[in-house]
Measured scan of single mutants.
Amino acid sequence: MTEYKLVVVGAGGVGKSALTIQLIQNHFVDEYDPTIEDSYRKQVVIDGETCLLDILDTAGQEEYSAMRDQYMRTGEGFLCVFAINNTKSFEDIHHYREQIKRVKDSEDVPMVLVGNKCDLPSRTVDTKQAQDLARSYGIPFIETSAKTRQGVDDAFYTLVREIRKHKEKMSKDGKKKKKKSKTKCVIM
């Protein structure tokens, strides 16, 4: 069974824990209790493949930012979460993405942009803004509501699919490099 290491990042209060708990335990946590770091595991079937999701729910508070490099190193894919009623959390996505790329030393890291709290009427981040940002990053965008469960499975499952595509691409690139290195030079 394939294991996928997913990391949920975003500013404090955007609903990272609520999304994760909704996926794992099928219930909505409405009281806000700032996370330092929590880890969850769940076995699911995605596109006919049974897999184990190892999900790291991270601290959004700035005082825990020193811990970010460590979990970013171990993560295979990242859910970059903002709240649709919090423009600052949307603007912060850029910083999370840049930090992930720096730590992973790669421009090509599996990510999904997630606009959470889409059940709320007080939207300050337009869907088109988020779609445009995701398009500019070359990553999928999904709106979710941890409260109603809308888009929750889709967000995590899409990230797994992005990781699969990335692994497939990397193995193809690896095979191309191996083929090239088999060419021999004969000096007579």
Rank of each mutant, 00 (worst) to 15 (best):
41 R>E: 07
30 D>I: 10
21 I>K: 15
29 V>F: 11
33 D>E: 13
8 V>F: 02
6 L>Q: 00
10 G>Q: 00
27 H>Q: 12
24 I>P: 15
3 E>S: 13
53 L>V: 11
30 D>L: 03
60 G>R: 07
10 G>M: 00
3 E>W: 01
14 V>C: 12
34 P>T: 03
15 G>D: 01
32 Y>P: 09
40 Y>I: 08
40 Y>K: 13
27 H>C: 13
3 E>Y: 06
13 G>H: 03
12 G>M: 03
16 K>H: 00
64 Y>A: 15
57 D>N: 08
45 V>N: 03
15 G>E: 01
36 I>R: 07
26 N>M: 04
44 V>P: 08
35 T>D: 15
24 I>R: 13
11 A>N: 03
15 G>I: 00
17 S>E: 07
29 V>Y: 05
63 E>H: 07
54 D>I: 03
17 S>D: 12
57 D>H: 12
29 V>R: 12
51 C>R: 05
23 L>C: 13
53 L>Q: 04
41 R>I: 04
61 Q>S: 12
61 Q>V: 13
36 I>F: 06
55 I>F: 12
8 V>Q: 00
20 T>M: 07
41 R>K: 10
32 Y>N: 14
60 G>H: 10
44 V>R: 05
6 L>G: 00
4 Y>F: 12
3 E>A: 15
32 Y>L: 09
56 L>W: 11
14 V>F: 02
60 G>S: 08
19 L>A: 14
2 T>E: 15
11 A>I: 15
23 L>E: 14
33 D>L: 09
42 K>S: 09
57 D>C: 13
20 T>P: 15
34 P>G: 05
60 G>A: 07
22 Q>E: 12
19 L>R: 00
61 Q>L: 07
49 E>K: 06
4 Y>K: 05
61 Q>T: 14
49 E>T: 09
39 S>F: 04
64 Y>L: 07
40 Y>P: 10
7 V>L: 02
23 L>P: 15
22 Q>F: 03
55 I>V: 13
57 D>A: 05
27 H>G: 14
48 G>K: 08
46 I>H: 05
14 V>P: 04
37 E>P: 05
14 V>R: 00
22 Q>H: 08
38 D>N: 10
24 I>V: 11
5 K>I: 01
19 L>H: 12
7 V>R: 14
54 D>P: 04
16 K>C: 08
10 G>A: 02
37 E>T: 05
26 N>F: 01
6 L>H: 00
64 Y>K: 15
45 V>K: 11
58 T>H: 13
33 D>G: 10
26 N>C: 04
36 I>S: 14
8 V>K: 00
23 L>Q: 14
18 A>F: 03
50 T>N: 07
